[in-house]
Every structure is written in structure tokens, then in C-alpha cells.
Write a protein that binds this DNA or RNA. Structure first.
Lengths: 227, 227
DNA sequence: CAACAGGCTATACACGCGACCAGTCCGCGA
DNA sequence: TCGCGGACTGGTCGCGTGTATAGCCTGTTG
């Protein structure tokens, strides 16, 4: 019994157990070539046979879920370890090569894949953003919103969406190439981001004020919606 | 000779020629189920045999390109026909069910597919946005930017990205269902959009001002970058 | 009337995928 | 020492894809 434990510990230290190696290889392959990466590719990358993946995970979907969980875990680690750098907003933080390019690209691909998985990732991202924004509002750095949750969600969608689109049009060969692209085009993208963040782009307040006034009016479609 | 002409005209009026029917069916299927839609599905939708698609278009990529061109053409038509409604920004216009849901979803899917095709679509969208923004700046409705092109590009990426993400997490069964979803969640999304557009979310100008001052400083990495 | 041309169909092919399974090897436990 | 169980392998299967091709069927032409 304890010898089995020994083996497990030893393999975790020196080189991981085959199961973990497959998982890590899958994460890398998914980030590299999308979730269409074949078992054979992953197996070759993990230096195991294709059949072993099925043996350990049963199906591709199960493997995908385990990879998702692992990436989410690592992402949280990166976030909590980077609290010392109080960046103003999410994108600045994500753009930093601090977080592993593989994780960033996996996030983007997970969102890009859509479905419930994408929703889970976005919820997690929203959670992290929520803390940042709350602290920002408290410190007076960011304006309070009339609907904090809605603003949070849309900001997340917007930010991740811009990142996703940038990724899609670049179609980089490797995650590192993508973050390099971000750095290259950085001077072109940071200025509009900051401009839009501090000034917006509408010079006329009337549209917003009209809409707020419209929302303040009583509506009748709420009570009768269920019937 | 004229009888052949007659046939052509008649089919264009009553029902289109098989080639056009395939193209339209492909556009609809691509919007409905993505570009992975099979020849068989498209053929069934166009009421022809799968082989006929190959016969007319040669390959799937060629079919795709023809669909892209057609959608872009129709999109431009929709845009030019809707000049009478001077909407402030793109998303308001796109959200309207004025433009056919199929076209909107095809746009989103084309961007989501990535690659050079996505770039073409985004460039076209940027072009349209450029006119709107220029007119807005002229009329004093929107603030001028320190870098109009960069703002334009990022705004397009942001807007389309948010739309794309929304589409991906909803994973609607049909284009109509998607625009319906937009309408349902509209009250949750319009407010943050307007807020962010007119006020931004940063209360402190210092970050932007610092960056602008930083850009004004002379840089040495430009001349030595090539070596 | 007969022959032809082309739109159109049905079938067949090659390929890559995930899933599955019989068999091998190694190490722990009795 | 023997035997058992799980890690692991390589090959095979069915499926669905895009592509290629041989043949039918209709309308036109000499």
C-alpha cells in the first residue's frame, strides 16, 4: 500500500503520472490547435498510446472537462498570486505574459468554443472582475454603475470578445505568438482602451439620460409577462 | 435561344436557378449550423443532390467564398437602405431585427470562424463604422479621438466580440432565436452600453493622461527595431 | 425523328475521427 | 514464488466527411 503511495509521490515529483501527463498534454494541444485536437496528437505529445486516453478518461468530453477544471484552477492560482500588482482592469492583467500564454489562449478557446463550458469560464472571469471593480469603486478609481452586475457582465463579454476576435483574425500558430502579437499591436490598442475607459466616446449625455429616465418610468410588461 | 432566356428569367422570378438556390441554402445552413454544415444538409435544403454542389462550385471553400460575397453584398444593401434611421452606434443598429437575422448571424459566424475571411468581414464593418463615427464627430455627438483609426478598430472588435460571445454562450438553435435573446436581455445590456459609451468606467483621468504623456515622449525602439 | 448536350442524380471512394477490445507487461500482495 | 490486477499498447470498427465519376433524363438542335 505505502509502496503504491511512494510510486505516486515519486512520479508527481520527477515526472507526472501518465494520467496527469495526458491532461497537461491535452491542455497544451487544445490551446495550440483547438479542441479538435485528436487523441493521436495528444497521445504523441504525452508520449503514450491513443488508447490510454480512452482508458483513463472514457471519452473526449470527460477529458475536456478535466482540462477545463485544471485550467480554471491554474488561472485562479495565477490571479491570487498576482494580487501584489494592483492593475486597473482585467485586460491589462491578461495581456501581461505573467499568466502563461497557454492558459490565456485556453481561456480564449474555451470561450470561443461556446456552450455551457464557455459560460462557466465567463462566470469565473466575471467573478474575478467583480472583486477588482468593487475595490476600484471603493477606492474611487472607477465610477459606480447604475447596475453593477450588468456592467460587469457586459464589460467581461466586451473584453473577452475583443481578445477573442483579435485571436481569431490573427490565427496565431502558437500561444506565445499570440501574446507577442498583443505586445506588438499594444501601442495601437492601449490608447483607445484608456480613452474609452475614462471618457467614453459619446460627447452628448442626452441618450443615456433619456434612457435612464425611460427606465425610471413604470412599465406594465413586467406583471403580465408570466401570463 | 430566347426560350433558354425565358427559362432563366422565369426561374429567377418564381424560383431561382439551382446555383443561386444552392448559394442561398448554403447561407441559411451556414448561419443556422455553422460552416461545418455538410453538403448533404445544404443539398437537402436546396432540394438538389449533394453532387450538384461540387458540380457548380468545385469545392466547399469556393462555395463559402461565394456565400461570403453575397452576404457582404446584402449587408451593404441593408446598411444603405437604413440610412434614414440615424442610429448613434453600430450595435443599436445591428440589434434591430431590421437586418435579417440570417445575415447578422452569418456575420457573427464569419467572424467567429476566424482567418482571412473574418478579417475581410471586420474590415467591412469597420468601414461602415468609420462613416458613422466621422459624421458623429462632425456633428459633435461623439468625442474626437487621439487616434481615430485605432479607436475605430478596437470599438469594432469590442462590439462584434461582445456580440460573438453572447452568441456563443447562448448557442441559439436558430438565428431568429438569437435576435429574440438579444431583445430579451436588451434591458440588461443597453444600460451598461450607454453608461460606458458616455461616461466610461474610470473616474480617475491620471492613467490616460500618464499614457498620453508617455506616448509624447521620444522613443528609441523605433529606429533600432529592424536591426 | 434521331442524336446530342448539359443539368442533375446516385453511387463509390479515400480519409480521419472517436470508440472499442483483445492482448501484453509490470509490480504488488499472499 | 505464484498469481492477480491494473497500467498500457496496437489494431480494428463504424461513422461521417468532402471529393470524384459514371449514368439518367430532359430539352434542344440538325
Amino acid at each position: 500500500m505505502y509502496s503504491l503511495l511512494y510510486v505516486r509521490i515519486a512520479r508527481e515529483v520527477v515526472d507526472l503520472t501518465a494520467r496527469a501527463r495526458i491532461r497537461d498534454a491535452a491542455i497544451e494541444c487544445f490551446a495550440q490547435s483547438g479542441f479538435g485536437a485528436s487523441f493521436r496528437t495528444i497521445a504523441a505529445h504525452a508520449e503514450v498510446s491513443p488508447g490510454l486516453i480512452t482508458h483513463h478518461f472514457g471519452s473526449k468530453e470527460a477529458l475536456r472537462e478535466e482540462c477545463d477544471a485544471e485550467v480554471l484552477r491554474r488561472y485562479r492560482d495565477i490571479k491570487t498570486n498576482a494580487v501584489d500588482a494592483p492593475s486597473a482592469h482585467l485586460l491589462t492583467e491578461l495581456t501581461q505574459p505573467t499568466s502563461s500564454p497557454t492558459i490565456l489562449v485556453y481561456l480564449i478557446r474555451a470561450v470561443g468554443a461556446g456552450g455551457p463550458g464557455a459560460r462557466r469560464f465567463l462566470d469565473r472571469l466575471t467573478d474575478d472582475m467583480r472583486d477588482v471593480m468593487a475595490r476600484g469603486v471603493e477606492s474611487g478609481l472607477v465610477r459606480p454603475s447604475r447596475d453593477e452586475e450588468a456592467r460587469l457582465r457586459y464589460l467581461t463579454y466586451q473584453t473577452m470578445g475583443a481578445l477573442l476576435v483579435q485571436f481569431l483574425v490573427t490565427s496565431p500558430a502558437t500561444p506565445d505568438e499570440f501574446v507577442a502579437t498583443l505586445g506588438d499591436a499594444g501601442s495601437d490598442v492601449i490608447l483607445p482602451i484608456l480613452e474609452l475607459a475614462t471618457e467614453g466616446y459619446l460627447a452628448d449625455r442626452s441618450i443615456l439620460d433619456d434612457y435612464v429616465r425611460f427606465l425610471a418610468e413604470p412599465h406594465d410588461d413586467q406583471g403580465a409577462s408570466a401570463s
